[in-house]
Simulated assay, not measured.
Amino acid sequence: MFRRLSPVLLCLSLVACSAPAPDEQEQAVVQAEQRAEQDAKPAPQTEVATDAATCDATQAQWTVGKAIGDADLEQARKDAGAQTARTLKPGQVTTMEFNAARLNIDVDDKGVATAVRCG
């Protein structure tokens, strides 16, 4: 009455009854939707770190029109909250990197300050 199925036939019948594998294109669509959802989420807000040594050149504007000596340069650096300060003479070779914590005082040929800036 009951006939035994061979293990191979039993296995094939179970495979035939299982759900079909998802199509590659469907998988690609699902993955694309998931990436789009991730990209649509707003990026977490990061706070901008404020460095205590950031330069504020407006605090050293008193040097403009004045002959700058070492003591004046140091006082201007402190007033601006800069880590370093330098005077720049006309035609002087300088480095071009920006340093937000450095005070630059441009002077003329006589050593009189003509401009103050950070960088």
Rank of each mutant, 00 (worst) to 15 (best):
Q83K: 04
D51T: 07
R3D: 15
V112Q: 06
G91S: 11
A60D: 00
A52K: 09
D79Y: 04
A80K: 05
C55I: 04
R4S: 15
K110H: 11
A76F: 05
Q45I: 00
M96I: 14
V64S: 05
D23F: 10
D39Q: 14
P44S: 02
T46Q: 05
L103D: 07
D51C: 10
A113Q: 05
C11Q: 12
A113F: 03
R86V: 08
K78G: 01
T114S: 06
T95N: 07
A115W: 00
E47H: 06
C118I: 03
D72F: 07
A80R: 03
T84L: 00
A40D: 15
T63C: 10
D70G: 15
D109G: 10
Q61P: 03
N104S: 10
R86S: 12
V30L: 14
V29F: 14
V30K: 14
F2I: 13
D56K: 01
D106M: 09
M96T: 14
E37R: 15
R4H: 13
L14K: 09
A67L: 01
D51S: 11
A52T: 10
T50D: 15
P42S: 00
L5F: 15
A76V: 06
G91Q: 11
T95Q: 01
T58Q: 14
T46L: 00
G81E: 07
V107E: 08
R35A: 13
R86D: 12
Q92A: 11
N99V: 14
V112E: 14
A100E: 14
Q38E: 13
A21H: 05
Q34W: 01
V112C: 08
A76R: 06
A113G: 07
G111C: 09
C118Q: 06
P20F: 11
N99M: 09
V15C: 14
E26V: 07
T50G: 12
F98P: 00
